[in-house]
Design a protein around this nucleic acid. Structure first.
Lengths: 217, 217, 217, 217
DNA sequence: TATGAATGAGAATTCATTCAT
DNA sequence: TATGAATGAATTCTCATTCAT
């Protein structure tokens, strides 16, 4: 905290992490070389080892920290929300916002799981499971009190997460749409998506074939 | 004539492609070594070059062939469908089915785009754009005749594709759900998701904030 | 000789040798691959082995045949020449002409000796020695009867051969000079070069240091 | 401070260059493997890349440095020489001396040009042209003031260079002849070779055919 | 005689990591 | 804490050669 000039320790580590996120996002973990990373930071490759212990460890730290942040901030965002609809809307808004702000960390955490070795993989998947569980619980509650209707909670959980997370493959700051517009667009899809069938049945051009499919599931 | 020992002719190429898909799916393109691939096929690494011209080319061929198949089969699946609702349902059913059957090719085509070099990347992105365009057109038509309501067509296109494609990160044949159940679950989410707001509005616990956001988009 | 249609044996071998000369001249023996060579000829690499026994053997044959031709034709060119001056002029004219006509073979025979394995190298060097010996003998005779003056016969032999052979690093058919002009230019240098010192001494700006050096040799 | 174990710093690069010159001289650039080179230096193949950037670059550096040295030292050797005869004698003495001292670099610079890629080749050929130009100018001046007579300056330039450079294919230190004797032998050939025809004409056994050829050039 | 596929060795180069300074 | 040099294993890819068909 009271760091004197010349002590670059934390600064350097931060620079490594920042550059690491960027390079892994752009090239992938396997394709990023530590020489590249060091060059980006402005040091020699060997010097990285004064700050990280391993390339694998750097990845793990980045991913783990991200998911921990995600979880913590989600819980803040859901705080005080009572009914499932409100919660789901908060979830969507939070998830979309977070993914717009930190899309590179998000992307890495989703696409580089396979580059984690077994132990690290398990740890991260456990954390991710906790996050998924938050959404699954919201859906379960909503279905229980009749606010939502889904064919399968598990599938819906995965599908909604995929839908929301897809954002970080195309979002670029300064694009055509405002943050709110993007949130609204996702909110519409998700909230409508889990809305009870009855409500939409009237307006829909629904066919028997669809009903049959659903019934058959 | 009826050769069985070793791997010869088109058989070998097929074996290379099959093993390639599996290894890239499991480890990623960068992480798959040609030694590994060759070992899987049962030949020496150098012998691969009797069948492929480059590791990069193998990836490109796999991805391109997949997307071409996807497009061709989609058009077959949509043939004869008239109204947007019917089309969207057909799209969902087709996409989900295809992704269950060939989830590894699908996964590769989505996750290894960044491993393609510039020229190949552009070619694949163009093809993928054509596929996205099919869905965008369905949504556009549905919105035009009032069957659908979405906040933003572009966003909805990407989101729905992400939702459907997410399937291949968790689907395993022989799982808890039947093929039809999985299709139905996705159909519900997508069809409801684009259903006109009016119909669901009553059932929804909609908040002012959301309406404002939508209005502002 | 009485070859029937369909028998391409000698034709193919000739094509291989021709292409081989060109490729070795352009890229060097080590840098020429048999795949390249085969492609040039229009066959598969494996098929080369119906005509040659080894890459090394191809090189050896090309070089050996060239030197044999060189020797045989030199003897024809020197036939009937009596005095050393006449012989030397004939040698120059022959060597230059031959090197203009077959500069690629010549170049290979000079630059790829080191790519020959020990046995082949020795054989070729022996043949080359015979050729050098022809020139050495001419010089020896000329010196003996006072027609020539050289400081050292061995050195003069190598130097004159290098001078003449240098031609094939710059000569291109259809250049600025006619064949005769090129011969004349070399003849002047060589014939003057071995002319007795006395004759030129007057015209030369000879220094004592040079005389001393010569005396000391 | 006084490090002696292993090879470090500029020492290693120097060792690589020295070993490189020797190996390329002996086997040719294409035939020298970096494993070989590294073994010669006493390091692992990969470690070479701490000192050079590419095999091609090593060759280029060796060749370029050699030609730069050659040019610089030639200009020193010619300094203060006034008339063409004196200059030509100085040129011969310098060239021969240099080629005896650094025959391997010289040989490489002459025989491995074709192994340079286009850009490097052009750079080296430009430098070499500057060197050739020095000799061409001496000949031009000598012809202008009547001290020399040559049939064609261009051809004479190439021929004399080839004559002198040929040295490095046979010269071995500690051979039969002293340095001075070798210089004298080449001086005699070159100086006589460009001496005016008139002076030698008397002593020569010149034939009409030769005169005709020269006249016709 | 030609082919296509295979081999096994070897090419240049890159990599994560270590360590004396 | 940084450096520069080293390591040894691994990378993609090429090569001359073989051989069943």
């Amino acid at each position: 905290m009271a760091r004197t000039i010349g002590s670059h320790g934390p600064t350097t580590l931060e620079a490594i992490r920042k550059a690491g996120v960027r390079l892994i996002f752009e090239h992938g973990y396997e394709a990023m070389s530590l020489r590249q990373l060091a060059a980006e930071v402005g040091i020699q490759a060997g010097s990285l080892y004064n700050h990280i212990s391993t390339k694998q460890d750097l990845l793990f730290d980045l991913v783990q920290d991200h998911i921990n942040d995600l979880l913590r901030e989600l819980d803040l965002a859901l705080e005080g929300k009572a009914d499932p609809g409100e919660k789901l809307r908060a979830f969507v808004a939070f998830h979309v916002t977070y993914h717009m702000t930190r899309k590179r960390e998000v992307f890495i955490a989703n696409s580089e799981l396979r580059s984690l070795d077994a132990k690290n993989y398990d740890a991260v998947v456990a954390l991710r499971g906790a996050y998924e569980q938050r959404l699954a619980q919201i859906l379960t509650d909503g279905v229980a009190d009749g606010a939502f209707e889904v064919v399968d909670i598990q599938v819906a959980t995965f599908a909604i997460l995929a839908l929301l997370t897809g954002l970080c493959t195309w979002y670029r700051p300064g694009g055509r749409l405002t943050r709110d517009a993007i949130i609204a667009a996702h909110e519409k899809l998700v909230l409508s998506g889990v809305a009870p069938r009855a409500a939409i049945g009237q307006a829909s051009h629904g066919s028997d074939s669809r009903r049959a499919a659903v019934a058959g599931s």
